[in-house]
Nucleic acid binder design. Structure first.
Lengths: 212, 212
DNA sequence: GTTTTCTAATACAAGACTGTATTGGAATTC
DNA sequence: GAATTCCAATACAGTCTTGTATTAGAAAAC
């Protein structure tokens, strides 16, 4: 029952627990509102352990930010990778969103906390900017493909269309937290679906204008 | 030169300066990161003055939140009130956005700080929720009217369309701060304009389907 | 012009947070 | 199995923050 852990494993586990506890506390009280002591305590360690594993709170925040952005990108990629049709892809996204909705507030709070921290910490910004760019260009490719499949011309630069879809995610999440009754579980996916149809209509109309 | 201020005026001015200084500092360092002393100092007063005018930092945050949401709603209303045509309204919004873009980062940081604070402070949430609802329903009315003017049926519940437009604002601001190069000055207005055209196309298509 | 009322500055006590230095006890190496 | 290396707990000094209590000075009332 007592699995022997190698030192490396033990250390990794300690770091992981500290990161997790920090994420929770950041969501609850903010980065500035959570003390090193509280983080260590919730993780089940002491302050000494914290400083042994991280150079300080800022270093932990940086690592948390990197970890979260990486993991989220992975999850979306995995969720949509297996989808053959557009409907399947949307279904997969819906499922992913539902999953996330269960901890929406703390999720959004953590995202906003990390965003703010990145805004205020110049050396962290490239990290976030890069990940956002990647998300946008993947989305742009998807939009282009889907419109093309329906025989519609993009009614604007696909990069701009992707930006809209991408931005909607954050914006709708915020609205949802502020007013859960007005924003359904699947608003994000529904909205993107609607936009895609709208753009198809606009692009198709333009393309068929000459023919009709 | 030395205008005599009545006590009321003087007090009001002190409060205003404290609120302004707090807004700056909250944007820079976060609500938790700004101490009462720093706020008082930047405003040109001492801590005693602060506690004489507010019950504490939380009370100041609440007042700041109320003031900002009220003021913003007013500004948008004023900006669009004078517009006779849709183009004029969009132009007015563009101008308003350009104005705001000059302090974009601190503006967004403050909004996010206040949002987070509201998320974590149950008694503050109704305040924000109410204002967001009002904004959405005003927007819904506008969307309905514009689509109607073009003879298009709303392709979805106008409330949902308004939600999308409204959410885009926050989302695009976030993207813009993270990656200014990828998001133009007028992305918000451009996006809403595009959406309106798209929905017209979709709604018009649906409406004319039987006729064609 | 004197008294009263109110605003803002200063002083103070209590508590919290940080980072480091030291110590005890495991895991690895020989 | 002894020595060494590493991890985490505890102790400590210093700084910062908060809220209140006291005090000086200006404005309002008479």
């Amino acid at each position: 029952m007592a699995e022997r852990l190698t030192r490396q494993e033990s250390r990794r586990r300690t770091r992981g627990r500290l990161l997790e506890a920090a994420a929770e506390l950041f969501a609850e009280r903010g980065v500035n509102g959570a003390s090193v002591e509280q983080i260590a305590e919730r993780a089940g360690y002491s302050r000494g352990a914290f400083y042994g594993n991280f150079d300080g709170k800022d270093a932990l925040v940086a690592e948390l930010l990197a970890e979260r952005t990486r993991r989220e990108a992975e999850e979306v990629r995995e969720a949509t990778a297996g989808a053959a049709t557009r409907a399947e892809a949307f279904d997969a996204l819906r499922a992913w969103n539902r999953e996330r909705a269960r901890n929406l507030e703390s999720w959004l709070a953590l995202r906003m906390e990390l965003l703010l921290h990145a805004i205020r910490t110049p050396e962290l910004r490239p990290l976030l900017a890069e990940r956002e760019q990647a998300a946008r260009s993947a989305l742009a490719e998807g939009v282009r493909r889907e419109l093309d499949r329906d025989g519609a011309a993009p009614p604007a630069d696909p990069a701009f269309l992707a930006l809209i879809a991408h931005a909607l995610e954050d914006g709708l999440l915020i609205q949802r937290v502020l007013d859960p009754a007005a924003v359904g579980d699947e608003a994000v996916v529904d909205a993107v679906e609607l936009l895609l149809r709208s753009w198809t209509a606009l692009g198709g109309e333009a393309a068929e204008e000459g023919g009709t």
